[in-house]
């Protein structure tokens, strides 16, 4: 991976980075909630068609990086290009799956309504919901195996089912880039298998997938690319290059026992 130069300095654009062919490019992303930056000067490139895991210890800024990329959190500095365009222009091509715990599941809404939320931007304020919109929402539910739950109140779902509904909502956006925040956190094995199957389908369709991921043992199986972060970028690239015992050791600061890490990384090589 060629070294990437900072494209911005204190918010002043120095030059346009070479982002052609990348689904997502981030330059100099720095985010702070208070004093010390949570994410510091991070550069990131996600090639089109990649399935990338964002990996790092707790508090390493994985979710924050994702939120800053999407503009949910305002960064102190940094540039985001999506499909070689400004984020604002490319936003309709980006779907987001937030952490399941980020919403109140007692909210008065049904499963199908949540999936329809994926079309809110498309429908705007006044456009009526047509049968084909509903049919698309049901299609998305079918892809995650939740057809039978369409009319359920969302409070009656298990954690895994909630996660699938969130994924269905992202599918309803018909985007080209999918950003997922810990899609496998606290879900049952069946859901994990269902979600990874959908993500692999997306990749087969030529879409790009980026997911914050916690389970190091599944990185080589699930993903083609890895991005290791601990406040700053540790490594990025194809799993075989970026997800090595050496990079993991640097990301986790030696907190992982070396032997199993080596084993995990070897399976990916």
């Amino acid at each position: 991976m060629a070294p990437v130069t900072l494209a911005s300095d204190k918010g002043r654009v120095i030059g346009t980075p070479d982002t052609a062919g990348q689904a997502l490019s981030v330059r100099g992303m720095t985010v702070s909630y208070g004093a010390a930056p949570v994410v510091f000067s991070v550069d990131m490139d996600v090639p089109q068609g990649a399935m990338m895991a964002i990996v790092g210890p707790n508090g390493a800024g994985k979710s924050t990086l994702l939120k800053a990329v999407l503009g949910i959190v305002k960064p102190l500095s940094g540039q985001v290009r999506v499909f070689d365009r400004a984020l604002k222009e490319a936003l309709p091509r980006v779907a987001y799956v937030p952490q399941r715990a980020s919403v109140d599941w007692d909210f008065p809404t049904r499963v199908i309504d949540v999936v329809m939320m994926g079309m809110t931007r498309e429908l705007g304020l006044l456009r009526r919901v047509r049968p084909h919109h509903r049919a698309r929402a049901m299609d998305c539910l079918a892809r995650v195996g939740m057809t039978d739950f369409a009319a359920r109140q969302i409070g009656q779902l298990s954690g895994g089912q909630q996660q699938r509904v969130f994924l269905a909502r992202a599918l309803a956006q018909q985007a080209d880039l999918y950003l997922l925040d810990e899609p496998f956190a606290g879900v049952d094995a069946a859901t994990e298998a269902a979600i990874i199957a959908v993500l692999k389908e997306l990749r087969a369709e030529g879409k790009t997938v980026v997911a914050v991921h916690h389970d190091l043992s599944t990185v080589p199986d699930y993903f083609t690319h890895a991005f290791l972060i601990n406040r700053s970028r540790i490594a990025q690239g194809p799993v075989a290059e970026a997800f090595t015992p050496e990079t993991l050791d640097r990301a986790y600061g030696g907190r992982l026992a070396t032997a199993p890490v080596a084993q995990m990384a070897d399976t990916g090589a």
Binding site: L70, G71, I72, L91, Y96, P98, V103, T120, L179
Partner: peptide, 10 residues
């Protein structure tokens, strides 16, 4: 329901 998602969808 989901302000973060709302922001992320524009």
């Amino acid at each position: 329901f989901d302000p973060g998602y709302a922001e992320a969808t524009g």
